[in-house]
Amino acid sequence: MARSDSEGSGATIRDVAVQAGVALSSVSRVLTGHPDVSPAMRAKVEAAVAELGYEPDLLAQSLRSGSTKTIGFVLRDISNPLFANIARAAEQELRRSGFSMLITSSDGHLDVEARNLALLRRRRVDGVIVSLVSEEAESTRAALAAINGPVVLLDREVSGLGAAAVLCDHYSGVYRATGELLARGHQRIGLVSGALTVRSSRERLRGYEAAFAAAGVPVDRSLLALGSFDADFAKAEVIRLFSRRDEPTALITGGIASAAGALQGLRQLRRAVGTDVALVTLDEWPMFDVLAPDLASVSRDSGEMGTAAARLMLDMLNGAEPRTVVIDTHFTPRDSVGPVRRVTPAPRKAPARRSAPKKSVG
C-alpha cells in the first residue's frame, strides 16, 4: 500500500498529530514554518516527529500548497569566496522561514546561466536570486522573464524585469581609493576589472574617473583593462601593462579573482607590492591576510548582501512590491598603498684616466 505524506518510515502526518495530541492543522503549520505557532506547540510537534521518524513528502506538500518552499540561487562563479559568503547568509535567512535553497553556478558562461534559470523554473522554485554574467544577454533576459515568481538581482540592473535588487555602492569606495592614490602622487593608475556589461564595473569606472576629475588629472584610458573578473585575464593584463615603458605606478583590481591574478602577474615580473607598485583590491579574502605587505581594499559586507537578498525574496513572496537595497563599501588604506617610487639615477662613473704611453728604450 502506498504511504501517505512520508518516505522512509511508515509514520504519517496524522500519526504525528495523534502522538503530539494536537490538531492536524497545527502539525502542518509547524512543518511549513508558519510564524503563528507557540513555542510549546512547536516543541510538541517536533518531539513527535523525532520519536516517530516522520519524513514529510515534500512533493506532495508542494502539489497541495502550490509552493515548493525552495528558492533558486544562480551564482556567476561558485568558486569565488564572495559568492560563497553571500549564498551562506541567504540560505541561513531563508531557512529561518522554512525555505531551502537550490544553488547553481554558471561559471561565467551565458548559455549555462540561461539553462540554469530554465532548470530552476522547471523545478518550480518559488523565486530566484541571481548574479548575472551580463545584464545585456537576451537569452538571460528571456529566461528571467519566464520565472514564475519573484526575482532578486545581486548587484545587477535589468530594466523592465520588475525585479528587486541588492546593489553595492562601488562608486564611493573606488572614488576614495583612487583619490588616496592620487594624493600620494600616483597618476598612472591601472584599473583591472570586469566588462562594462555589468553594473559593478560601470560604477567602479565612474568612481575612478570622478576622482581623477576632482584632482584635475587627465585619465589615461590605455591603463584601463575592463573585460573579465577572471584571474587569468587579470594576470595577462597586468603583464601587458607592466611591459610598457610608461608602466603604471599603482593598480586597482576588481574582485578577489582579479587581485589573485594581478598578484601572480606582478610576481612573475618581479614587481614588489607597496614599493614598486601600489595595490588596492576590490573585495577582501582571508587568505590575503597572510600576504606582506597588508593589502589596501575596498570592501563590502557579503553577509549583509545575502541576508538582504533573502529578506527581499521573502517580502515579495508575502506580497510586497520589489524594491532596492544599497550596501555601503568601505576603503581601508594599508601598507600596499605606498607613494610613487622615486628612481634615483645611478651615479655616473668617472672616465678611467688613461696612462701615459711608455717611452721606448733603445
Rank of each mutant, 00 (worst) to 15 (best):
L167K: 13
A272I: 09
A213R: 01
E91V: 03
E7A: 07
I256R: 10
F331D: 12
S6H: 03
A231N: 08
D328L: 11
S134N: 13
L120M: 10
L24S: 03
L154Y: 03
D294E: 07
M41D: 14
E113W: 04
E209P: 08
F229I: 02
V158C: 06
V217P: 12
A48N: 11
G254D: 04
L263I: 05
D220G: 02
D111I: 00
R311C: 11
A47P: 15
A143T: 01
R221L: 08
A40S: 05
S134I: 05
S302Q: 12
I147G: 07
Q268N: 01
E91I: 04
S159N: 15
R342T: 10
S297T: 00
V174R: 12
H34E: 14
A250Y: 01
T253K: 02
G8D: 13
R29E: 14
V133S: 13
A225W: 06
S302M: 14
R121P: 09
L191V: 01
N148T: 01
R267D: 15
L63N: 05
P218I: 03
L154R: 06
G194K: 05
F212A: 00
E157F: 07
F233P: 10
D169G: 07
D232P: 03
P293Q: 10
T253G: 02
A20L: 02
S201L: 04
A23D: 14
P339V: 00
